[in-house]
Design a protein around this nucleic acid. Sequence first.
DNA 1: ATAATATGAAACCTTTTGGTTGCAAACATA
DNA 2: TATGTTTGCAACCAAAAGGTTTCATATTAT
Lengths: 123, 123
Amino acid sequence: MRRDVFQAIADPTRREILNMIAYKPLNVNAVAENFEVSRTAIYKHMKILIECGLVDVKQQGRERFCEAKLEGLSEVSEWVEQYRILWTSKLDALENYLKIIQTKNNKQNKIQKKQAPKISPIK
Amino acid sequence: MRRDVFQAIADPTRREILNMIAYKPLNVNAVAENFEVSRTAIYKHMKILIECGLVDVKQQGRERFCEAKLEGLSEVSEWVEQYRILWTSKLDALENYLKIIQTKNNKQNKIQKKQAPKISPIK
DNA sequence: ATAATATGAAACCTTTTGGTTGCAAACATA
DNA sequence: TATGTTTGCAACCAAAAGGTTTCATATTAT
């Protein structure tokens, strides 16, 4: 049973749950009212969020308020941001390339038709 | 069949693949050599990465080089970053709280024992 | 005390995921 | 031409994911 933050936020319902309790803690029933699926389904999603540290539970009488602990998202942030320099620099390179192409086209308007590959592409 | 970036990066093998081709495009065989699982398994992972736009394929003879298109990660970055203000501000609040507690404890050293809840906690 | 509410969890089901082996087609090379 | 590579994909499988209904227990309200 993998249980890490990446897997936790992979499910759109769990991302919605997180957003719902990001500003104000709610109990599972209150959260479940906003979804089509059953309370038990939401409970299971919540359990996963709790297990990977993205949600904390505060008991208050018979109610349990689920509070978002979003600092767990920093792991995702760090992973993504390590690549930012790569994708931005590549976009810069593309920009330069397009500029060069444009200049060339203004001078001589030749078009090279590339032969289509015979192997069918991945669908 | 859900096929979005969040789901694509949920799998640790796919994150490793992305890292492997982030700096230099590789064909599936070359990528698969670095894993325990079969080429076909890696091929399937690659297909998912391609389908959600995180990888592009460039044909060269009989080889197909898989190139990372990491700008697709910006969607994840944006989703995570919208919450950064929340978790940092909460940490600030905690810091303040701890400071206040400390000051109080220095003046009067009372400990309040909280009764344990009877409902078993979520495991 | 009784009824209603909030919760945790078991048992079960279907679909998706991640993996396998095997095979055929396209391409490169001896 | 014959042979070895690289690839895409079908067929199959086990386990995980996501959902359901049902039930027991703790707490609150009447």
